[in-house]
Nucleic acid binder design. Sequence first.
DNA 1: CAAAGCATGTCAACATGACTGACCAAAAAG
DNA 2: CTTTTTGGTCAGTCATGTTGACATGCTTTG
Lengths: 167, 167
Amino acid sequence: MTDQKVLTAPHPLGQEELRQSIELLFFAYRDFTAEADAILAEYGFGRAHHRVIYFVGRHAGITVSDLLDILRITKQSLGRVLGQLVLDGFIVQRPGLRDRRQRLLELTEKGAALERRLTGRQADSIARACAEAGPHAVDGFRSVLLGLVHDGDRVRFTRRPERNGGE
Amino acid sequence: MTDQKVLTAPHPLGQEELRQSIELLFFAYRDFTAEADAILAEYGFGRAHHRVIYFVGRHAGITVSDLLDILRITKQSLGRVLGQLVLDGFIVQRPGLRDRRQRLLELTEKGAALERRLTGRQADSIARACAEAGPHAVDGFRSVLLGLVHDGDRVRFTRRPERNGGE
DNA sequence: CAAAGCATGTCAACATGACTGACCAAAAAG
DNA sequence: CTTTTTGGTCAGTCATGTTGACATGCTTTG
Protein backbone atom coordinates (compact mmCIF):
# COMPACT_ATOMS: atom_id res chain seq x y z
CA MET A 1 0.00 0.00 0.00
CA THR A 2 1.03 3.54 0.39
CA ASP A 3 3.00 4.97 3.22
CA GLN A 4 2.26 4.39 6.84
CA LYS A 5 5.19 6.19 8.37
CA VAL A 6 3.71 9.55 8.93
CA LEU A 7 6.46 10.83 11.11
CA THR A 8 8.58 12.54 8.52
CA ALA A 9 7.75 16.00 7.36
CA PRO A 10 8.95 16.55 3.85
CA HIS A 11 8.19 20.19 3.32
CA PRO A 12 6.52 23.18 4.91
CA LEU A 13 4.31 20.87 6.94
CA GLY A 14 0.92 19.94 5.63
CA GLN A 15 -2.38 20.09 7.40
CA GLU A 16 -2.05 16.53 8.63
CA GLU A 17 1.42 17.05 10.07
CA LEU A 18 0.25 20.14 11.88
CA ARG A 19 -2.73 18.33 13.31
CA GLN A 20 -0.48 15.57 14.52
CA SER A 21 1.79 18.10 16.16
CA ILE A 22 -1.14 19.66 17.97
CA GLU A 23 -2.21 16.26 19.21
CA LEU A 24 1.31 15.28 20.19
CA LEU A 25 1.53 18.35 22.34
CA PHE A 26 -1.76 17.48 23.99
CA PHE A 27 -0.97 13.82 24.65
CA ALA A 28 2.63 14.45 25.66
CA TYR A 29 1.68 17.18 28.12
CA ARG A 30 -1.15 15.11 29.52
CA ASP A 31 1.08 12.11 30.18
CA PHE A 32 4.06 14.17 31.28
CA THR A 33 2.12 15.99 33.97
CA ALA A 34 0.32 12.84 35.08
CA GLU A 35 3.61 11.49 36.44
CA ALA A 36 4.05 14.30 38.90
CA ASP A 37 0.35 14.50 39.70
CA ALA A 38 0.51 11.01 41.15
CA ILE A 39 3.25 12.03 43.57
CA LEU A 40 1.50 15.26 44.48
CA ALA A 41 -1.67 13.39 45.33
CA GLU A 42 0.18 11.68 48.18
CA TYR A 43 0.58 15.07 49.81
CA GLY A 44 -2.90 16.32 48.97
CA PHE A 45 -1.45 18.77 46.49
CA GLY A 46 -2.32 19.55 42.91
CA ARG A 47 -0.56 20.83 39.86
CA ALA A 48 -0.74 24.40 41.09
CA HIS A 49 1.35 23.48 44.13
CA HIS A 50 3.85 21.79 41.89
CA ARG A 51 4.38 24.88 39.79
CA VAL A 52 4.94 27.00 42.89
CA ILE A 53 7.36 24.52 44.43
CA TYR A 54 9.25 24.19 41.20
CA PHE A 55 9.77 27.87 40.54
CA VAL A 56 10.50 28.76 44.14
CA GLY A 57 13.12 26.04 44.08
CA ARG A 58 14.52 27.38 40.88
CA HIS A 59 14.63 30.98 42.06
CA ALA A 60 15.23 31.00 45.79
CA GLY A 61 14.11 34.28 47.33
CA ILE A 62 11.68 35.09 44.51
CA THR A 63 8.93 37.59 45.25
CA VAL A 64 5.26 36.85 44.85
CA SER A 65 5.10 39.35 42.01
CA ASP A 66 7.86 37.69 40.06
CA LEU A 67 6.24 34.34 40.58
CA LEU A 68 2.99 35.74 39.22
CA ASP A 69 4.77 36.88 36.08
CA ILE A 70 5.93 33.35 35.51
CA LEU A 71 2.71 31.55 36.27
CA ARG A 72 0.33 34.05 34.63
CA ILE A 73 -2.33 33.56 37.24
CA THR A 74 -3.81 36.06 39.66
CA LYS A 75 -2.38 36.95 43.03
CA GLN A 76 -5.43 35.47 44.66
CA SER A 77 -5.04 32.10 43.00
CA LEU A 78 -1.42 31.96 43.94
CA GLY A 79 -2.18 33.12 47.44
CA ARG A 80 -4.31 30.11 48.21
CA VAL A 81 -1.82 27.42 47.22
CA LEU A 82 1.08 29.39 48.60
CA GLY A 83 -0.69 29.67 51.92
CA GLN A 84 -1.14 25.91 52.05
CA LEU A 85 2.49 25.29 51.22
CA VAL A 86 3.59 27.66 53.97
CA LEU A 87 1.20 26.16 56.49
CA ASP A 88 2.40 22.67 55.67
CA GLY A 89 6.03 23.70 56.01
CA PHE A 90 7.18 23.34 52.41
CA ILE A 91 7.91 27.02 51.90
CA VAL A 92 8.97 29.84 54.19
CA GLN A 93 8.34 33.52 53.66
CA ARG A 94 10.66 36.18 54.95
CA PRO A 95 10.01 39.87 54.54
CA GLY A 96 12.12 41.80 52.08
CA LEU A 97 14.76 44.01 53.62
CA ARG A 98 14.68 46.72 51.03
CA ASP A 99 10.88 46.58 50.76
CA ARG A 100 9.12 45.21 53.80
CA ARG A 101 5.91 44.54 51.90
CA GLN A 102 7.53 41.74 50.01
CA ARG A 103 7.47 38.11 51.08
CA LEU A 104 10.55 36.47 49.68
CA LEU A 105 9.90 32.80 49.12
CA GLU A 106 12.18 29.87 49.80
CA LEU A 107 11.81 26.13 50.04
CA THR A 108 12.35 24.49 53.38
CA GLU A 109 14.38 21.29 53.40
CA LYS A 110 11.09 19.43 53.31
CA GLY A 111 10.04 21.48 50.30
CA ALA A 112 13.35 20.98 48.58
CA ALA A 113 13.05 17.25 49.07
CA LEU A 114 9.67 17.19 47.41
CA GLU A 115 10.93 19.40 44.62
CA ARG A 116 13.80 17.04 43.97
CA ARG A 117 11.47 14.11 43.90
CA LEU A 118 9.08 15.74 41.45
CA THR A 119 11.70 17.21 39.19
CA GLY A 120 13.69 14.02 39.24
CA ARG A 121 10.72 12.05 38.04
CA GLN A 122 9.99 14.47 35.25
CA ALA A 123 13.62 14.71 34.29
CA ASP A 124 13.70 10.94 33.99
CA SER A 125 10.72 11.05 31.63
CA ILE A 126 12.31 13.61 29.41
CA ALA A 127 15.70 11.96 29.54
CA ARG A 128 14.19 8.69 28.43
CA ALA A 129 12.26 10.30 25.60
CA CYS A 130 15.37 12.15 24.48
CA ALA A 131 17.48 9.05 24.63
CA GLU A 132 14.98 7.17 22.49
CA ALA A 133 14.78 9.96 19.98
CA GLY A 134 18.52 10.47 19.81
CA PRO A 135 20.60 13.39 21.01
CA HIS A 136 20.11 15.10 17.75
CA ALA A 137 16.36 15.22 18.09
CA VAL A 138 16.70 17.05 21.37
CA ASP A 139 17.89 20.25 19.78
CA GLY A 140 14.92 20.26 17.45
CA PHE A 141 12.57 19.52 20.30
CA ARG A 142 13.87 22.44 22.27
CA SER A 143 14.03 24.93 19.45
CA VAL A 144 10.47 24.31 18.30
CA LEU A 145 9.19 24.58 21.86
CA LEU A 146 11.12 27.78 22.26
CA GLY A 147 9.39 29.12 19.17
CA LEU A 148 6.06 28.51 20.84
CA VAL A 149 7.02 30.53 23.90
CA HIS A 150 5.99 34.15 23.78
CA ASP A 151 8.79 36.60 23.26
CA GLY A 152 8.76 38.00 26.76
CA ASP A 153 9.73 34.68 28.29
CA ARG A 154 12.27 33.47 25.76
CA VAL A 155 14.98 35.32 27.56
CA ARG A 156 14.68 32.76 30.33
CA PHE A 157 16.28 30.27 28.03
CA THR A 158 18.98 32.38 26.49
CA ARG A 159 20.76 33.66 29.55
CA ARG A 160 21.33 32.47 33.05
CA PRO A 161 18.07 32.28 34.92
CA GLU A 162 19.73 33.07 38.25
CA ARG A 163 19.74 36.67 39.25
CA ASN A 164 18.75 37.21 42.82
CA GLY A 165 20.19 40.58 43.48
CA GLY A 166 19.47 42.65 46.49
CA GLU A 167 18.06 40.72 49.33
CA MET B 1 34.38 -1.57 28.18
CA THR B 2 31.74 -1.70 30.83
CA ASP B 3 32.17 1.87 31.90
CA GLN B 4 28.96 3.60 32.62
CA LYS B 5 29.32 6.48 30.21
CA VAL B 6 29.55 4.35 27.11
CA LEU B 7 25.97 4.60 26.09
CA THR B 8 26.68 6.45 22.86
CA ALA B 9 25.15 9.80 23.72
CA PRO B 10 27.58 12.68 23.34
CA HIS B 11 26.22 14.13 26.51
CA PRO B 12 23.42 12.39 28.36
CA LEU B 13 21.75 15.70 29.01
CA GLY B 14 22.74 17.34 32.22
CA GLN B 15 20.59 18.49 35.04
CA GLU B 16 20.39 21.99 33.65
CA GLU B 17 19.33 20.89 30.18
CA LEU B 18 16.64 18.70 31.64
CA ARG B 19 15.35 21.50 33.81
CA GLN B 20 15.21 23.77 30.80
CA SER B 21 13.28 21.15 28.89
CA ILE B 22 10.76 20.86 31.69
CA GLU B 23 10.32 24.61 31.73
CA LEU B 24 10.10 24.83 27.96
CA LEU B 25 7.28 22.36 28.00
CA PHE B 26 5.50 24.41 30.64
CA PHE B 27 5.93 27.78 28.95
CA ALA B 28 5.25 26.48 25.45
CA TYR B 29 2.08 24.72 26.49
CA ARG B 30 0.93 27.72 28.48
CA ASP B 31 1.35 30.08 25.55
CA PHE B 32 0.14 27.61 22.95
CA THR B 33 -3.15 27.01 24.70
CA ALA B 34 -3.62 30.69 25.52
CA GLU B 35 -4.13 31.39 21.82
CA ALA B 36 -7.17 29.19 21.55
CA ASP B 37 -8.46 30.15 24.98
CA ALA B 38 -8.92 33.70 23.79
CA ILE B 39 -11.14 32.57 20.92
CA LEU B 40 -13.09 30.20 23.13
CA ALA B 41 -13.83 32.96 25.60
CA GLU B 42 -15.86 34.72 22.90
CA TYR B 43 -18.26 31.80 22.94
CA GLY B 44 -18.23 31.36 26.69
CA PHE B 45 -16.33 28.12 26.34
CA GLY B 46 -13.22 26.81 28.02
CA ARG B 47 -10.42 24.47 27.21
CA ALA B 48 -12.57 21.45 27.90
CA HIS B 49 -14.94 22.45 25.11
CA HIS B 50 -12.01 22.88 22.78
CA ARG B 51 -10.77 19.36 23.34
CA VAL B 52 -14.21 17.93 22.70
CA ILE B 53 -14.73 19.95 19.54
CA TYR B 54 -11.31 19.04 18.28
CA PHE B 55 -11.57 15.30 18.73
CA VAL B 56 -15.16 15.08 17.54
CA GLY B 57 -14.07 16.93 14.42
CA ARG B 58 -11.17 14.59 14.01
CA HIS B 59 -13.24 11.45 14.48
CA ALA B 60 -16.74 12.09 13.20
CA GLY B 61 -19.22 9.65 14.70
CA ILE B 62 -17.08 8.92 17.76
CA THR B 63 -18.81 7.46 20.79
CA VAL B 64 -18.71 9.04 24.22
CA SER B 65 -16.69 6.09 25.49
CA ASP B 66 -14.03 6.45 22.84
CA LEU B 67 -13.82 10.15 23.53
CA LEU B 68 -13.31 9.39 27.21
CA ASP B 69 -10.39 7.14 26.36
CA ILE B 70 -8.75 10.02 24.56
CA LEU B 71 -9.39 12.72 27.10
CA ARG B 72 -8.80 10.63 30.24
CA ILE B 73 -11.50 12.41 32.19
CA THR B 74 -14.66 11.00 33.71
CA LYS B 75 -17.95 10.56 31.94
CA GLN B 76 -19.50 13.14 34.20
CA SER B 77 -16.95 15.79 33.38
CA LEU B 78 -17.36 15.17 29.69
CA GLY B 79 -21.13 15.12 30.02
CA ARG B 80 -21.31 18.71 31.18
CA VAL B 81 -19.33 20.31 28.40
CA LEU B 82 -20.81 17.99 25.82
CA GLY B 83 -24.29 18.94 26.95
CA GLN B 84 -23.48 22.61 26.51
CA LEU B 85 -22.06 22.06 23.07
CA VAL B 86 -25.16 20.15 22.00
CA LEU B 87 -27.48 22.77 23.47
CA ASP B 88 -25.64 25.53 21.69
CA GLY B 89 -25.74 23.69 18.40
CA PHE B 90 -22.06 22.91 17.92
CA ILE B 91 -22.45 19.16 18.14
CA VAL B 92 -25.25 16.75 17.30
CA GLN B 93 -25.81 13.34 18.83
CA ARG B 94 -27.44 10.51 16.94
CA PRO B 95 -28.17 7.15 18.47
CA GLY B 96 -26.05 4.22 17.40
CA LEU B 97 -27.73 1.76 15.06
CA ARG B 98 -25.98 -1.34 16.30
CA ASP B 99 -26.26 -0.23 19.93
CA ARG B 100 -29.04 2.20 20.68
CA ARG B 101 -27.45 3.31 23.96
CA GLN B 102 -24.65 5.02 22.13
CA ARG B 103 -24.72 8.69 21.20
CA LEU B 104 -22.55 9.09 18.14
CA LEU B 105 -21.11 12.57 18.05
CA GLU B 106 -20.66 14.87 15.08
CA LEU B 107 -19.94 18.53 14.57
CA THR B 108 -22.62 20.70 13.04
CA GLU B 109 -21.52 23.16 10.39
CA LYS B 110 -21.37 25.77 13.15
CA GLY B 111 -19.19 23.43 15.19
CA ALA B 112 -16.98 22.64 12.23
CA ALA B 113 -16.49 26.36 11.61
CA LEU B 114 -15.33 26.90 15.17
CA GLU B 115 -13.09 23.88 14.99
CA ARG B 116 -11.45 25.21 11.82
CA ARG B 117 -10.92 28.56 13.46
CA LEU B 118 -9.34 27.09 16.58
CA THR B 119 -7.22 24.51 14.81
CA GLY B 120 -6.18 27.02 12.19
CA ARG B 121 -4.89 29.37 14.83
CA GLN B 122 -2.96 26.66 16.61
CA ALA B 123 -1.63 25.26 13.36
CA ASP B 124 -0.32 28.71 12.51
CA SER B 125 1.50 28.87 15.82
CA ILE B 126 3.16 25.55 15.31
CA ALA B 127 3.92 26.22 11.68
CA ARG B 128 5.64 29.46 12.59
CA ALA B 129 7.66 27.84 15.34
CA CYS B 130 8.65 25.03 13.01
CA ALA B 131 9.60 27.42 10.26
CA GLU B 132 11.82 29.38 12.65
CA ALA B 133 13.46 26.24 13.93
CA GLY B 134 13.98 24.75 10.51
CA PRO B 135 12.33 21.73 8.94
CA HIS B 136 14.95 19.54 10.42
CA ALA B 137 14.09 20.46 13.97
CA VAL B 138 10.53 19.38 13.43
CA ASP B 139 11.39 15.71 13.31
CA GLY B 140 13.19 15.97 16.60
CA PHE B 141 10.37 17.92 18.13
CA ARG B 142 7.86 15.29 17.16
CA SER B 143 9.91 12.28 18.08
CA VAL B 144 10.73 13.53 21.58
CA LEU B 145 7.10 14.41 22.18
CA LEU B 146 6.11 10.98 20.95
CA GLY B 147 8.49 9.49 23.49
CA LEU B 148 6.63 11.30 26.23
CA VAL B 149 3.29 9.84 25.18
CA HIS B 150 2.31 6.69 26.99
CA ASP B 151 2.50 3.53 24.97
CA GLY B 152 -1.20 3.02 24.63
CA ASP B 153 -1.65 6.21 22.67
CA ARG B 154 1.41 6.12 20.47
CA VAL B 155 -0.46 4.05 17.96
CA ARG B 156 -2.46 7.15 17.13
CA PHE B 157 0.62 8.57 15.49
CA THR B 158 1.93 5.54 13.67
CA ARG B 159 -1.10 4.56 11.65
CA ARG B 160 -4.04 6.35 10.17
CA PRO B 161 -6.19 7.80 12.92
CA GLU B 162 -9.42 7.31 10.94
CA ARG B 163 -11.25 4.09 11.55
CA ASN B 164 -14.94 4.54 11.99
CA GLY B 165 -16.04 1.11 11.07
CA GLY B 166 -19.33 -0.04 12.42
CA GLU B 167 -22.14 2.40 11.97
C1' DC C 1 6.59 66.48 56.41
C1' DA C 2 1.82 65.21 54.81
C1' DA C 3 -1.11 63.73 51.22
C1' DA C 4 -1.67 61.23 46.91
C1' DG C 5 -0.77 57.56 44.34
C1' DC C 6 1.36 53.13 43.26
C1' DA C 7 2.94 48.45 44.51
C1' DT C 8 2.58 44.20 47.29
C1' DG C 9 -0.07 41.06 49.21
C1' DT C 10 -4.81 39.38 51.58
C1' DC C 11 -9.84 38.40 52.16
C1' DA C 12 -14.45 37.29 50.19
C1' DA C 13 -17.36 35.67 46.63
C1' DC C 14 -17.87 33.32 42.46
C1' DA C 15 -17.10 30.22 37.87
C1' DT C 16 -15.11 26.40 35.49
C1' DG C 17 -14.02 21.92 35.08
C1' DA C 18 -12.19 18.19 37.35
C1' DC C 19 -13.97 14.35 40.79
C1' DT C 20 -17.19 10.43 43.29
C1' DG C 21 -21.61 8.30 44.07
C1' DA C 22 -26.16 6.96 42.74
C1' DC C 23 -28.82 6.00 39.05
C1' DC C 24 -31.37 4.60 34.41
C1' DA C 25 -31.49 2.00 29.94
C1' DA C 26 -29.93 -1.25 26.69
C1' DA C 27 -27.16 -5.17 25.56
C1' DA C 28 -24.84 -9.42 26.84
C1' DA C 29 -24.30 -13.42 29.71
C1' DG C 30 -26.20 -17.16 32.61
C1' DC D 1 -36.02 -14.43 32.40
C1' DT D 2 -32.86 -12.80 35.70
C1' DT D 3 -28.22 -11.01 36.35
C1' DT D 4 -24.21 -8.63 34.88
C1' DT D 5 -21.91 -5.51 31.96
C1' DT D 6 -21.80 -1.44 29.18
C1' DG D 7 -23.21 3.37 27.73
C1' DG D 8 -24.68 7.43 29.46
C1' DT D 9 -26.95 10.97 32.97
C1' DC D 10 -28.02 13.59 37.36
C1' DA D 11 -26.51 15.61 41.88
C1' DG D 12 -23.08 17.20 44.83
C1' DT D 13 -18.19 18.25 46.08
C1' DC D 14 -13.37 19.79 45.39
C1' DA D 15 -9.47 22.20 43.18
C1' DT D 16 -8.12 26.13 41.07
C1' DG D 17 -8.96 29.64 38.23
C1' DT D 18 -11.47 34.53 38.16
C1' DT D 19 -12.89 39.74 39.81
C1' DG D 20 -13.67 43.19 43.49
C1' DA D 21 -12.63 45.43 47.78
C1' DC D 22 -9.11 46.30 50.90
C1' DA D 23 -4.80 46.97 54.29
C1' DT D 24 -0.09 48.01 54.32
C1' DG D 25 4.08 50.12 52.95
C1' DC D 26 6.93 52.57 49.51
C1' DT D 27 7.47 56.71 46.56
C1' DT D 28 6.56 61.05 44.77
C1' DT D 29 5.15 65.66 45.19
C1' DG D 30 3.27 70.23 47.04
